[in-house]
Design a protein around this nucleic acid. Structure first.
Lengths: 192, 192
DNA sequence: ATAACTCGATCACTTAAGTTAAGAAATGCG
DNA sequence: CGCATTTCTTAACTTAAGTGATCGAGTTAT
């Protein structure tokens, strides 16, 4: 599992054995059971998550309804906005599968950034890349219809359609579960 | 105008006079006329933009139709995804007002990042903040209807409604210009 | 084993957005 | 200034999403 992490890091910076050991000794690897809530609305938190195995989701509760806005799977990182803004969280984070996560603390990260320029370089590049990726996702979302968005998801993240309940997928696509059901029926109709 | 920039930077790191002079001597301040296209679809580019005055927009041309996905105004920064991915641009960037911009080059930035850790720290923090902000925007977009999105925009970016043509606002809200017109009429109806 | 709950599909109905077209108002340009 | 183009609004019609309700299958808990 550690190798998975270092393979990932090696795409951004190259670490010495000592540096790798330093990371391992931080003791931030965590096994988390399906259903565990990592962050609740209203909570303050300094934790960031990196998914080594499994899937976590972020969701809001608006008018008593869950609105799932994002999923993070293998090799994806999440720093909740509340960690950046230092305000209470607007949303929940929970595990929809048994997970192996890296859970880091922003104080710890600040220290690493100061001590190891290499680490800060990696964080900068990662943020810049994520920003660009997210921008493209947002643009695609804006410029397409629910049906196109669903087809796009089938194309690009077929795994999500298998591992995530439909009602969570629906709000991820910006629609109601009933509409997703109907839309899927419509697509099947067209194919035949 | 330079002061505006240094005021902005001072929120992230504190610069010495020498460092400020170094930035000024990079000669990256540019005046750009309304209507100027800064980046075209298919082009490769290494340029990032920081708006000191004015407004720039990003748009795709899909099926011959312009789809505006973002506006950048005073004190906002744009690094097009193509600069990060080093692939031809998927979209256009153009000025919808006379602008004063900082136009930087990614090679130049890489050099600065290497020479001045302070600069890299600022870039990291900025990217992290922008990522969190954009995440919230995306989440709000997903969880609300076109009408709510419009009202939200009136609330949070009233300036955009004044300075931007409606058909550009419409695709920014993920709808057609006719729908925006209708939706506005509906809102006025309700108020009376 | 059964009761309670969750999840997805379906249906009828309502509401709003997409589409097509036309025309008025504003803007730009020769 | 006046013509052309762009921008915005309106309207009629089509299509799809929201809403509320029901049903069946699968899961969980007791």
């Amino acid at each position: 599992m550690q190798d998975t992490l270092f393979d990932f890091i090696s795409k951004y910076v190259s670490l010495t054995e000592d540096e790798k050991n330093a990371i391992v000794s931080l003791d931030i690897f965590r096994s988390v059971k399906k259903g565990t809530t990592l962050l609740k609305e209203g909570q303050k938190s300094k934790e960031s998550y990196f998914v080594l195995k499994g899937c976590i989701r972020t969701y809001y509760v608006l008018d008593g309804e869950e609105k799932t806005t994002a999923f993070y799977t293998e090799m994806e990182a999440l720093t909740p906005p509340c960690v950046i803004s230092k305000t209470p969280s607007e949303y929940y984070v929970s595990c929809i599968e048994d997970c192996i996560l890296l859970i880091s603390n922003s104080d710890m990260e600040a220290e690493l950034n100061q001590k190891f320029p290499k680490f800060e370089t990696m964080c900068r590049i990662l943020s810049e890349e994520l920003l660009a990726k997210q921008r493209i996702d947002f643009d695609e979302f804006k410029t397409s219809s629910p049906e196109q968005r669903y087809l796009n998801l089938v194309e690009k993240r077929p795994d999500l359609i298998q591992r995530v309940p439909q009602h969570q997928l629906a709000s991820y696509l910006g629609i109601k579960p009933q509409s997703l059901s109907r839309l899927r029926a419509r697509i099947l109709e067209k194919k035949s």
